[in-house]
Design a binder for these strands. Structure first.
Lengths: 217, 217, 217, 217
DNA sequence: CATGAATGAGCGTTCATTCAT
DNA sequence: CATGAATGAACGCTCATTCAT
């Protein structure tokens, strides 16, 4: 009777470039709508944190958020759109912070601040951060999400350039490697249940500055 | 509520405690059976590599392997058991290599060899390696799989101790951090499609030895 | 190994202890839902009557009821729960009647009325009644269903006591035997296709009162 | 590749009237074959007794019997054929006994002996007897099995006629009712775990002779 | 707009049956 | 003949998605 095939996304209203169907279905214009989106995202976050990916169903999210499934689909065209929005919500703050830090003058303190921000971010909601990291890799998410990663790398790249590194290509790879190092250590620590941000930061700094050439100042 | 288990062929040699249900259902007695297991695992590997986790269904695995679902369930009691066996197949060789390298005398060459092994492993089948890493984290797999990770960390730890590092507790964390650094860089590189093992190895070495204290020889 | 339960709508009113999983999944809140439950049960009844236990699959029930499988699972957590509900629907009326008859003063007319009720019940939908009897014995159904049998025996027991029988233990066995006699004759008759309730009642009465001691009045 | 549909029986070798496919596939001519059939049947009996209908699969039967599934299908064309043969094995002895008792002169002792035989039969392997009774009703078994029931009824019928009852039609129904009474009481007792054959026999006799008209001698 | 009942393709899994060895 | 690996239709059940109210 209803002839959809819910495993493939096909949206009649392609608004953005690639996986357009994952864009929010309607831009909330009323404050009520805005808060509903936030409520749903927080519901999704809690389901993931408390019950894991196995329990992460649209119905579970709706229940946890205290709304109906129908409402969820008012604001998100598909389940993956929720995941994407959640990733953006979580990474957005971190990205903004990193971007502003990248503009600061001295490269070394900037880099240290970036590290601190990453550590703080991961330790705030470690289980959620870890799962979202996994999903970011697992799902064919949109450009927006890929952009988050690229923006982080770009910010780091700028810091490196200002720190005295030269060759453009090389520094982009270096930035990517740095990011991989930071994420690797911090994720693993979060997974092991570490909570001491200062200690964790110290270890990450050691890795980062050990990796960078001596001429970085 | 799954309500019958008609296969009373519980493996007589239950080795791991908890997820015993994931142990192989029967040990193959005919020669053709032995190869069937391998064929199924390779089918699973190809589904994962070529179509990703979304397409990773038991029927897809069976089709790709050229056998029937029934045959899959002759040897694996559940889908997760296939994943587990695949992880063991893939990580097994790496672990064996690392273990033997850990026994080699000079710590620095040992560590370099470990890095080379990790890089080679990841670059052989990058997509598969990455997905299996994710699944290893995502699934409640058996002790055997957890042991793989622990064995790697232990091997690294021994190298560190022989390399002159002292405080036991600290070195365990250092080993974990090193592993996270290696995995982080190599995974990200594999995901970006890098294929130059030598260049990748060089970068990982820089990160590892930059992280280690200067007294490591 | 069934490995997710995405419906966290556990009924707030869990009434029976053990097979709680067989309790209705949700209490219908919209009027249409109430009728859906009835429609599903009648679909199940017709599948059983017309095609027997072999054809009694959840999809067959859904088709016969004119709904989707999904709808079936909105209200019943498992196939057995449908069977259980059907048994309760069918036996419920009989039990209520028997209970009220057990309260009537004169034991002999009460007993005769009970017999008539059993006969009428069995002849109304003989095939269904027979199959449900078998399933009641075959399946590990909940306390509620076991209670039905016990309630019938208890009701009979009370009639016997009021009829002048003494020894408690003995009369419980007598009640069980009477029930077995009634069920045996009536089931067999239903299976043979008998439709004459009056004639059947006469034969059952002969068996019952022939079995009871002469002092029963 | 193999185009069978294992839920419908279609046998190329129709030897007997109705569900011919359920006849033994080959009449065992060697003693080894004869004993294999017996071994398989006993395996089936034990699976049913110890693990119930849920566990009653052809593989389970083969395992319990210590033979391979292939061997089972050498002697039985389908699973139901095993069930049917088991019913015949179990009821055969009882039927033979009843038949010989029916030939004895005095009707009352003959009837008492029949009752004793039924009780003894049920108490020997109560769980098995009960399950086979259920299956006899549940499955579309062959004429042979239906004949068992008819033969029992016929034997009873002869006893009744010799006991002084007249009207032919009526006595056939009476025989059926008697059988239903006996089976009803004895089955229920077996299910409750009763083991006292003498006491059970006494109750069944009371029911039977209470049901028969006084002129039966 | 919100609700939640309804949908159905698809999943994991079973097991009666076949057939190469 | 015996074996047991292989088969695949069918089952119970899930859950992303739709739509009548």
């Amino acid at each position: 009777m209803s002839n959809h095939s819910h495993h493939e996304l096909a949206s009649p209203l392609t608004r953005s470039a690639r996986p357009a169907a994952l864009n929010p279905r309607k831009s909330p214009r009323q404050s009520r709508a805005t808060s509903t989106v936030a409520i749903i995202l927080e519901g999704a976050a809690r389901v993931l944190e408390e019950s894991g990916l196995r329990a992460y169903s649209t119905n579970a999210v709706a229940n946890r958020a205290g709304v109906s499934v129908g409402s969820v689909y008012q604001y998100f065209p598909a389940k993956e759109a929720i995941t994407r929005a959640l990733i953006q919500r979580e990474t957005g703050a971190l990205l903004a912070e990193v971007k502003s830090l990248a503009a600061v003058n001295s490269p070394r303190p900037a880099l240290e601040a970036v590290i601190d921000a990453c550590v703080a971010h991961q330790l705030r909601r470690p289980a959620l951060a870890r799962i979202l990291d996994l999903e970011e890799a697992r799902l064919p998410l949109g450009d927006d999400v890929a952009d988050l990663g690229r923006a982080l790398a770009t910010a780091l790249h700028q810091i490196l350039l200002r720190g005295g590194l030269r060759d453009e290509d090389a520094t982009l790879v270096v930035a990517a490697d740095l990011l991989a190092i930071i994420k690797g250590i911090v994720d693993a620590a979060g997974q092991r249940g570490e909570t001491d941000a200062a200690a964790l930061s110290r270890r990450v700094r050691r890795a980062v500055f050990g990796f960078l050439p001596a001429e970085f100042y």
